[in-house]
Design a protein around this nucleic acid. Structure first.
Length: 489
RNA sequence: GCGGCCGUGAUCCAGUGGUUAGGAUAGUGGCUUCCCAAGCCACUUGCCCGGGUCCGAAUCCCGGCGGCCGCACCA
């Protein structure tokens, strides 16, 4: 129920809505951000820059969305990012061969067989189309990347399925030109594209998605350091593959072997504190430790940051220790040396990745901050993430009040996300503002004309105070200021 | 992709073979209004798409697309 409520509010207030809905056959998995959604996303990304990128002294890039075939040969997406399928020659139905074989033989089918092995098993078991009984095609592959043809020759290229490949490919140039040393984080926020078979649940599963990624490059022989110590006392929640829950400080988690080393612990703490600042309730955030069989084949360790929502635990950030897989592969396939100098030592850096889903995060913030009290809905977003900062209202539409209110709004709109509203009763305007998460509203009344003061009304308490018009700028700036950083020192 | 349920204004709901497709909420314009969705008047917006059955389809049938749930997938 909560999921539908949140989606309804998102659409009614213009946070996000389905793409091109006026056209029939518009496919699932594509969404548009409306005015409030864009504003909130901008602020969310800015908070990420502040709490993660700048905090850690990372480099930020913005890579191309279309990349040549070779990049995905190196990354493994061309061969590995696929699902097997068979097609009925008669009725055209599409099936997964492993499911058909399992159904027929009543035995589990081993994972990751070759196409030939599927064909052989289907032959042996006499698998036919379950719809019409006709013969099926040989096993084919459905690649989840969107293929595009570049230029008149339609050169084979793909929309990137993750933002990180640009970071890997650009790394040698960045290292040479930016005068940095290992360990160094490189960040990127941008779009990725995945041709999902069954996108579902709004922003939680998209074909076109926004990611904010961090790739930390480091010398695997140097995984401790002073800079990592400042996260030692941060408390994190873990859940093991067997379901066992543990709450531990970073230093404790490293000692218990939950986390492989101080570097990984530091970055888990960094992303954890980012979400605390964004406003997710800390007791509903945890790191799921992935079992070996659930990880990508190159992964040397993986943690998913999850949040508990109405639909269950949802993964927001994939934290992956990728070893030297990426740089070694790009070295080999491109023929370029991807090793760098680290204090006199030639090294192919290892990579720890924090791959954050922006759209999912925004949905999670919307759902967790939505408070419903009867008819009344209030979006208790952190003031620095609220898409609209302040509304200016004349108490009544006469006697010069609108003129003064408009003047105040004009003086604020360039520095703040303000709006003017004179429609309906004052209570109605407060209610509308609450739904959009506006943290403070300004009301101009008859006293304002006499003493240059206005009412400042708070979203979360509905309390009021009088403020001089000349003080408004400072008061509002204070109300939406960023919190102090968690990882001091 | 498989199975189940479902699809009427921006939202929620009524309408199950013949209705000018109705209401509520929201929205717009106006009136009123000295602080929390008050009231009055007027107005805007709809049967997911395509095919079939029928004299006649929002309603029945088929297909597509979409939504929710379960399974699978999630590098």
């Amino acid at each position: 129920m909560k999921f539908e409520d949140a989606m309804r509010l998102a659409q009614q207030r213009g946070f996000f809505f389905k793409s091109a809905e006026s056209y029939p056959n518009s496919p699932a998995g594509f969404w548009e951000y409306g005015p409030l959604g864009v504003s909130m996303r901008n602020k969310f990304v800015e908070l990420w820059r502040r709490e993660v990128v700048k905090r850690d002294g990372m480099l930020e890039i913005d890579g191309a969305q279309i990349l040549p075939k070779g990049v995905f040969e190196a990354s493994g997406h061309l061969s590995g990012f696929t699902d097997p399928f068979v097609k009925c020659g008669n009725c055209g139905s599409v099936f997964r061969p492993d499911k058909l074989i399992e159904e027929k033989s009543k035995r589990p089918v081993p994972e990751k067989l070759t196409d030939g092995e599927y064909d052989e098993l289907m032959q042996k078991e006499g698998v036919k189309c379950t719809k019409c009984g006709s013969k099926l095609s040989g096993t084919g592959r459905f690649n989840m990347m969107f293929r595009v043809g570049v230029g008149p020759q339609q050169e084979e290229a793909y929309l990137r399925p993750e933002t990180c490949q640009s970071i890997f490919v650009d790394f040698p140039l960045l290292f040479k030109t930016q005068r940095v040393k290992l360990p160094i984080g490189v960040a990127q926020v941008g779009k990725s594209f995945r041709n999902e078979i069954a996108p579902r649940q709004g922003l939680l599963r998209l074909r076109e998605l926004n990611q904010a990624e961090v790739e930390v490059f480091f010398n695997p022989k140097k995984i401790d350091g002073k800079r990592f110590e400042r996260a030692e006392e941060v408390v994190l929640n873990f859940v093991a593959p067997d379901g066992k829950k543990t709450t531990a400080t970073v230093v404790g988690a490293v000692e218990q072997g939950l986390v492989p080393n101080a570097l990984v612990g530091y970055y888990l703490a960094l992303v954890n504190s980012f979400y605390a600042r964004a406003g997710l309730p800390p007791d509903r955030v945890r790191f799921r430790m992935l079992a070996e069989e659930d990880r990508a084949f190159y992964s040397l360790g993986a943690f998913d940051l999850e949040v508990e929502l109405s639909v269950g635990w949802v993964e927001l950030v994939a934290c992956n220790y990728r070893g030297d897989y990426d740089l070694s592969r790009h070295s080999r396939i491109s023929g370029t040396d991807f090793s760098v100098d680290d204090e006199g030592e030639k090294v192919v850096p290892h990579i720890f990745e924090l791959s954050l889903g922006v759209d999912r995060s925004l949905y999670a913030l919307l759902e967790t901050s939505m408070a419903v009290d009867g008819e009344r809905r209030t979006l208790r977003l952190k003031p620095y993430l609220a898409p609209r900062t302040t509304g200016v209202f004349p108490l009544v539409n006469k006697d010069g009040l609108p003129e003064l209110a408009e003047k105040i709004e004009r003086s604020l709109k360039e520095d703040f996300d303000s709006f003017y509203d004179d429609s309906g009763s004052i209570g109605r305007r407060y209610a509308r503002a609450d739904e959009a998460g506006v943290p403070v509203c300004i009301t101009v009344d008859y006293d304002s004309l006499k003493d240059n003061s206005v009412t400042l009304r708070s979203r979360d308490t509905s309390g009021q105070e009088r403020v001089q018009i000349s003080d408004l700028r400072g008061v509002i700036a204070g109300a939406i200021s960023f919190p102090r950083l968690l990882l001091e020192g």
